[in-house]
Design a protein around this nucleic acid. Sequence first.
DNA 1: AAAACCATGTAATTGGTTACATGATTGG
DNA 2: CCAATCATGTAACCAATTACATGGTTTT
Lengths: 180, 180
Amino acid sequence: MGSKTDMAILGMLTIEPMSGYEMKQFCEESLSHFWYETFGNLYPRLKQLTDEGLVKGRSEKRERGPDAIVYSLTSQGRARLRKWLIEPPDSENVRSEFMLKFFFGAQAPADVNEQRLIDYEEEQKRIRKRYQLIEQTLRDVLDGHKDEFYWLMSLRRGQLLNEARLRWCRECRTKFAELK
Amino acid sequence: MGSKTDMAILGMLTIEPMSGYEMKQFCEESLSHFWYETFGNLYPRLKQLTDEGLVKGRSEKRERGPDAIVYSLTSQGRARLRKWLIEPPDSENVRSEFMLKFFFGAQAPADVNEQRLIDYEEEQKRIRKRYQLIEQTLRDVLDGHKDEFYWLMSLRRGQLLNEARLRWCRECRTKFAELK
DNA sequence: AAAACCATGTAATTGGTTACATGATTGG
DNA sequence: CCAATCATGTAACCAATTACATGGTTTT
């Protein structure tokens, strides 16, 4: 079948050949607002994808650090990704623990909820700052790059959602204050 | 330990005693923008929660339709929920297939991406309409209710995020048009 | 009588997490 | 030399999904 993690891997390999370790980093640095991976998932999938002939890996010496297995796409792998990319996505099955706790907030002390909101707002502010940095570096690096449009608009989405969350936090804080 | 689904169940039972079937409906109607459940998950969890003494169920005749097992919270169940509510939430592990496809969009024909965006925008417009309806009914029903603040602000969040997504869609469409 | 809805359940499988284990290399 | 970083892997476990199975009740 091919799990979504498989597709994330194939997608990352369209950018450039990468090791599993680098894929994890790329997720954290560039996909974090809509994707994440763990090593315990990544490495077994890479093995599986190799068996299926969708990627191939070879050990390479690095400028610094130990050797790494650098994977690249096979033509089958590229075809598999393209096929997946034109299929409609499954409906998104959201599960937000944060919102679940918020929704049932009346069952908890108000100050616990308020503090959680403040923490959440701080986190969103950190994210905003990160997006600003990413935006600067991305615009230079990406000029004329094939992925330019999609990457910038992915970032833009992160920023718009981040703004919306911050606005929500501010509104909530105002209302919390009114309750007292 | 207690999965998040367990906590969702306990939370829903603070509103009123409910059957598994009604919990599913409640998720779809009221929690859909941050939570969902399937029967195949709900029923086994309800059994488990009963064994743990956190909920109790008894078969009841309904005004219409077949009998249903209506569950209610035990005092242990209520305590368990309150304990969970004051703990900080785990970090959210997002995985958006839609965004994964978008991010790697350069590997697919532009018109496929554009059409997917249009579909997505339509979906967001439907969601906007739904929120409007919910808002109207909620404001009347909820006046003075213990959950009023948290429910209205949960809805508000859904609306703000929905607005942000719609704005993103419009921006993307404009840029798509510029590319041609 | 059929379709739609109300209602509950289970078994097989999947997809992924967590924790553990190992070891090379680099910088302080 | 020690800590941090780079790098790969596996085994046990888990939560949840999917598909299947059943049957009562209401509406058309």
